[in-house]
């Protein structure tokens, strides 16, 4: 990357959830939701995070916003380690980093009008001064997400799923953030509505110069919107690189399998399917060595022994697999 310092740099992030048992709440184990993950995000960049359920992708998104407290690691946002921020400084950080959640039916307060929902972030961040000016701002916000001002007095239940997700996006944009975590923003929407939201996010990103951490289980959605993609499995990054490289020239067996599992409407280009056996292992006791080895078709004995280090296979393209002779 020719950029200066990245907007966000995550170094060796870990989030272990403790499992407690008994009346004295003795820690009996850890769920390693995120285990030693490092990546960076430049300004105006969209980084996609792909993974199955239980891979830790949502925990990554929440950790970088400090919505869950990381167990270890550094999260450097604009040169400052946000893990150490407290009080007013943390609040200032939250102004520049926002989140969009998966389910627009659950993330809007049903008792509030759309106007109040959009004013709330301004109130929290003390940007609320004169009613008239703020009202103007709210109307502008609605315009950015292509909605008209006549819904201001309505409540969430009167809107459709797609409209609600637009309100969630508008709410996130209300405080003019530089960085947005979009956690599965289209998964709860109908197929015909997904494209509307995807295109809206794509346009906003260019208009407003946003950096987005885009989390999804759907690799085609990520390919459409992201500049780079990170593939996570059991709390670890398996492969990270530019979108074209990941989708066209995958070097990790898991990425290969994930891509081949995507059902495609275009049956002419049917590829050979790689069907992975078994399920994602329990994150309380992940396999030794490479965490993917229990389901990998290429696993050899050495895979159980060592934790594969990321090795560079192209510019900015890293893969965590010891076998360089397979893909």
């Amino acid at each position: 990357m020719t950029d200066l310092a990245p907007l966000l740099q995550v170094k060796n992030l870990k989030k272990w959830f403790e499992i407690r048992h008994g009346i004295i709440s003795k820690v009996t184990g850890n769920v390693k939701a995120v285990d030693d993950i490092s990546f960076s995000l430049s300004s105006h960049e969209v980084l996609g995070i792909a993974g199955e359920s239980g891979s830790g992708k949502t925990t990554i998104g929440r950790s970088v916003l400090r919505l869950v407290e990381p167990t270890a690691g550094e999260i450097i946002f604009k040169g400052r380690d946000i893990v150490k921020l407290e009080g007013e400084e943390l609040r200032q950080f939250r102004r520049s980093a926002q989140i969009i959640f998966q389910d627009p039916f659950a993330s809007l307060n049903p008792k509030m009008t759309i106007e109040n929902i959009l004013l709330e972030p301004l109130k929290i961040h003390n940007l609320f001064d004169s009613n008239l000016k703020n009202r103007h701002q709210v109307v502008e916000l609605l315009q950015t997400v292509s909605m008209s001002a006549d819904i201001l007095k309505r409540r969430p239940h009167e809107l459709s799923g797609g409209q609600r997700q637009r309100i969630c996006i508008a709410r996130a944009l209300a405080v003019k953030p530089d960085f947005i975590v979009a956690d599965e923003p289209v998964s709860a929407l109908d197929v015909s509505i997904q494209a509307q939201i995807l295109n809206l996010l794509g346009d906003l990103r260019h208009q407003l110069g946003l950096s987005i951490l885009f989390i999804s289980h759907d690799i085609t959605v990520l390919e459409y919107l992201s500049d780079r993609i990170a593939i996570v499995y059991l709390g670890k990054i398996m492969e990270i690189g530019p979108t074209k490289e990941i989708c066209g020239n995958a070097k990790h067996p898991y990425t290969e399998a994930l891509l081949s599992a995507v059902p495609m409407a275009n049956s002419d280009k049917r590829r050979e399917r790689i069907i992975l056996e078994g399920d994602i292992p329990n994150p309380i006791s992940p396999p030794s060595g490479c965490v993917f080895r229990t389901r990998c078709n290429y696993a050899i004995e050495a895979c159980a022994g060592i934790l594969p280090a990321s090795r560079e296979v192209g510019p900015g393209h890293l893969t965590a697999c010891i076998r360089d002779d397979i893909l």
């Binding site: 509505i193 995807l198 295109n199 390919e223 074209k244 066209g248 495609m264």
Partner: peptide, 16 residues
């Protein structure tokens, strides 16, 4: 629906 392999296509856009 975004197509797999869409990053190879220039100016590809899904039509909402």
């Amino acid at each position: 629906i975004p197509k797999l392999g869409c990053s190879e296509l220039p100016n590809y856009r899904v039509e909402a």
